[in-house]
Nucleic acid binder design. Structure first.
Lengths: 398, 398
DNA sequence: GATAAAAAGTTACCACACACAACATATTGC
DNA sequence: GCAATATGTTGTGTGTGGTAACTTTTTATC
């Protein structure tokens, strides 16, 4: 029985077709465990629509591969023989890297989503690729014993704020880091001796929110993230991330919202991110910079900021109105300072979005604040690493 | 009704997994034939990456099912035993229906894309669902003998200009037809005794262009169609049609292009379709109405229309600029009068699009005029019917 | 014209993946 | 303790595609 058969374009030059079926089913079961948490074998059987005996064999194989393990049944309270609980093996980990203007954050995340470690290392200057690699090496060196004794590392996932071509691992442009046409995946892989993958930070945040956050179970959603460096986003359409022909899709910050607006650094006029902007918000809040939690508090504390907040909400609504007619999403998730803006007046945003949308289309759309906070990028970057593993549990060697 | 192969999420309670593999392979081969035209068995073997013997068995099964047939090998001129040519059976047909303001167009399209018949029946009033069904019944009655003797009808595909929920076959709103919350698929199916499916006309046009027209082989494209009733569109993302949570995605005509613009009938302000508009164009061309080919001729003949054409092109470019950053498509295809506009000055649109896009993103994007003309909707609607057949050639009974 | 080489169809056989069914096991409820 | 229920376990069967040996049909060469 084939489960969530992703639209497999014919992959040329492959092997036996029975293998393919097996691979798919292993993938399905492991994905259930990773995304859905520990579950009884009986539950897995139900979810996968496979036969009891097949589920048993699949779980046994995942166990042998060291990707899952079984524990004693929990007290179900129901009649019948209790079913053992299957867990994704959290000792299989991804190393995550998130370079920022003034720091590099490194995480160790286990299969199943458990965050083992999170280290933020401040930097004097904006980190280069080489500097980022050195920081990661230092941190890993510091926990070498633990890594070797406890964990099996599946790879490195790097979240970069900028245009990233995930296919070849090259960052085309990361303005705030000053990276341009910079190979990233390859040098990381070479330096660390691990498989490495890079992607846009907002895209990874979208993945994270859609699996572990506000978008759980939703197939069509738009995620919008506001940070000091602008507005990024990601789109899940039919359960699949929108990538575009070169992987640059969902640059939602450059949606037109004001045709008489000022010029954006991207070269256009009236982009969402020139109008809805953390800098402008902090200005009326009387601050130069502020952490995300501070912004929430400041908004509540500074009533004079109200007009600017309302202006930004109304402009944001224009962009969301366009997204509603373009994507017809089930949910729009707002992260970063956009989440703070939303929280400041949910009703106003709701009303503005409905006014800025095709009649009838916006009403069924949920507006929500992102749930994952500090874990966001780390979780997303780990997902980048686990994606391969989940797609082919038996075939991935690491 | 599923359009392009939607990523099949787990379908509970189904049969054997070997069957599933077989189904997938049958589907692959038949889809090659339908989209790629007649091909030798050896070519199919190469494309499908299956074994010679397996391809042979699959083709034999498709033959038995009456969906394909083999003919004598063509003179290849190469050394070696020649391979028989496999054809999709064009006698397996879809009936297509396209209700419009003043007419209902009915087509009979064979597997492989061959158009057997196309009948346009003018109406006195805007057709209702019932009237459309009666017209189809009359036309089919008129060719009953031929239908029974020659063809096997796979189903009816209906293209409706409006918001359509393909899943339940209900038209939520088709303003120009005056249809609102109107069940369409079900009454058609009941009246004709055939399987029926409805979808938005622009979405179907997108499918048609992506398979048989300007978008052949492209995985990421945006199709924009301009007609008297406004601007519709469709998006192919990663080879899959964008559907949205309720099937209303890609209402691209309601993208914001002018934040100080006039109110659109949809309730918003400054929508693309209020600014780029066949009515305004015809006005400067000195006409009340005109067929598509006439528009091309008129644009060339009326130099005074130039400023309005350039204005519309520039506004169109703003919307395309947003689509470029949102979808990162490989190609943007312009149909209807948008094709005429484009043809009037391709260089200007190209330049405006690059000015209205994030630096560097627009350059690799192809701008093209749609290729399919009168066949467009008929081909698309047929695809709607064939989608099921292609997804499961052995399982579809009709 | 005979023969070799190449390409593809055909057939018998094999490995495998999962379903099924019979049986074994563990729990609840009476 | 016994029935009912749910689940794990095991052996068997069906169906899938791959493999390899063989056959067929063509072109190229002597």
């Amino acid at each position: 029985m084939v489960l969530a058969s992703a639209p497999r374009r014919l992959s040329p030059g492959v092997g036996n077709s029975n293998d393919q079926t097996r691979r798919h089913n292993l993938s399905t079961v492991l994905t259930f465990l990773h995304h859905g948490g520990p579950q009884s074998r009986a539950q897995l059987t139900g979810l996968s629509a496979l036969n009891r005996s097949t589920t048993g064999a699949l779980v046994a194989e995942l166990d042998e591969l060291g990707l899952a393990y079984e524990t004693e049944p929990a007290d179900s309270g129901r009649v019948g023989r209790p079913s053992p609980i299957v867990h994704a093996n959290g000792k299989v980990v991804a190393i995550t890297v998130n370079p920022d203007i003034d720091a590099v954050t490194v995480g160790i995340v286990g299969l199943g989503g458990l965050l083992h470690h999170l280290v933020r290392r401040e930097t004097d200057a904006v980190p280069t690729v080489g500097a980022s690699i050195r920081i990661v090496q230092e941190i890993l060196e510091g926990m070498r014993d633990e890594l070797q004794a406890e964990f099996r590392v599946a790879g490195v996932g790097i979240a970069v704020p900028g245009l990233v071509n995930s296919r070849d691992g090259v960052v085309a442009l990361a303005p705030h880091l000053g990276w341009r046409d910079e190979p990233v995946a390859e040098p990381f892989a070479a330096a660390l001796g691990l498989r490495a993958a890079v992607a846009n930070d907002a895209a990874l945040a979208t993945v994270a929110e859609s699996i572990f956050g506000a978008g759980r179970g939703v197939q069509d959603l738009v995620y919008l993230n506001g940070s000091a460096s602008g507005i990024g986003g990601g789109v899940l359409a039919g359960g699949v991330m929108l990538r575009g022909s070169r992987g640059y899709a969902a640059e939602l910050g450059h949606t037109l919202v004001n045709s008489s607006g000022i010029r954006c650094h991207c070269g256009k006029r009236g982009c969402l991110e020139t109008e809805v902007n953390l800098g402008l918000l902090l200005q009326v809040l009387g601050r130069d910079s502020a952490g995300l939690d501070e912004v929430d508090a400041l908004i509540a504390a500074v009533p004079d900021a109200r007009p600017e907040i309302e202006r930004q909400l109304d402009v944001l609504a224009l962009a969301i109105g366009t997204f509603v007619s373009v994507f017809n999403p089930e949910s729009i998730i707002l992260g970063g300072f956009l989440g703070s803006l939303y929280e400041a007046d949910p009703a106003r945003l709701r009303a503005s979005v409905e006014a800025a949308s095709v009649v009838g289309l916006a009403e069924p759309v949920r507006l929500e604040r992102a749930q994952l906070r500090s874990r966001l990028l780390t979780t997303g970057a780990a997902e980048l690493v686990f994606a391969d593993l989940l797609a082919d549990p038996a075939g991935t060697v690491f």
